[in-house]
Design a protein around this nucleic acid. Structure first.
Lengths: 179, 179
DNA sequence: AAACAATTAGTACGTCTGTCCTGTTAGTTT
DNA sequence: AAACTAACAGGACAGACGTACTAATTGTTT
């Protein structure tokens, strides 16, 4: 049988990771500290240092965890996507930019972290995997698919920053060039 | 006539901004502190706090300054670009990813900062302006042009992270879909 | 029940941080 | 020359930080 202490520990580990994501949504990666995360989770500081010896370890874990989480969510959406992919793809982007805006921004901040740590390349690449799958669902041409993945990244980024507001019709119009 | 003290002050201001960019290239935005910047510039701490009262002010100034700097450089390249735009565009991207890799990464970190401060939206948008111009040089269709701008952002980002290595031929092949 | 292990709480230490304050230098104006 | 001011240096302060250490708590094994 499972050790009850360990399952509780794993639960708290997840609590700490979600708390970390919450902190990042609110204050950015810069706002992450053992104390801030502990406060967010309603937990003692020692508990965070127990599960994640260093801050770096915490951030790395948060990145990989967020990547898995996003992959799982996107995977669901991929399965539901069939009839009118352009419209549904647009709705997905809108979802990321409106209802999940903070989370998406947090993901991009973590995403960029990977550029400085080779150990995270794999996790960051996994991030793109479900997107690539969606793209291949949209068009069979592999070149157009990878172009679409890049464009999705760019559109999300630019809209997050507010340099270019998101517009549903504009976006679906763009997609017609990639069928 | 100009005040000699002020012109020296402005020079030091620029020195501090380039030092800030250098620190960001080396250690990321997270590594920026008054002391780190002062050390990089070989200057006393008080000098940085004199020119930029708060750290935030320093980062904001660094962002807008970097944006202007990049815009100026891209503007030059736009003028030289004529004969074979696809190839030259690919060379530009390669330039950003190889010879200017650290700087490009720094720019993206600052770029993302704008998402949390509405005051920076304008500066971030200015960042896209020369890119847009290049895109319109490449194709007359405005939709394809904005698609290209987004794709450029995505490709740069993904290559910086190392999730997708840059390949010259692949890239020029992608561009054919956007003529 | 007793020995043990996983987890949590409280706390303390040294370091680095942002920022302010005081004095000093150098250039400008009158 | 004297008053003034922009620019700079050095230092000091309180606070937040990462992290290690010790004890207490809780669950498991024997």
């Amino acid at each position: 049988m499972q050790d009850g202490r360990r399952v509780r520990g794993q639960l708290r580990r997840v609590e700490l990771l979600t708390a970390t994501l919450a902190v990042i949504e609110r204050a950015g990666v810069a706002g992450v500290s053992h104390r801030a995360v502990a406060a967010e989770a309603g937990v003692s500081v020692a508990s965070t240092t127990y599960h994640f010896a260093s801050l770096d370890e915490l951030l790395v874990a948060a990145l990989t965890w967020a990547a898995e989480d996003l992959a799982a969510e996107l995977h669901e959406r991929v399965n539901e996507m069939g009839a009118r992919p352009a419209d549904e793809l647009a709705r997905l982007i809108e979802h990321c930019l409106v209802y999940r805006r903070g989370r998406t921004l947090a993901e991009y901040e973590l995403y960029l972290m990977a550029a400085r740590r080779p150990a995270l390349r794999e996790a960051a690449a996994a991030w793109l995997e479900p997107l690539t799958q969606i793209a291949r669902n949209f068009t069979t041409d592999p070149q157009k698919a990878s172009l679409l993945v890049a464009a999705l990244d760019g559109i999300l980024l630019q809209s997050l920053i507010g340099a270019r507001p998101y517009n549903h019709n504009d976006f679906t119009a763009l997609l017609t060039h990639l069928r």
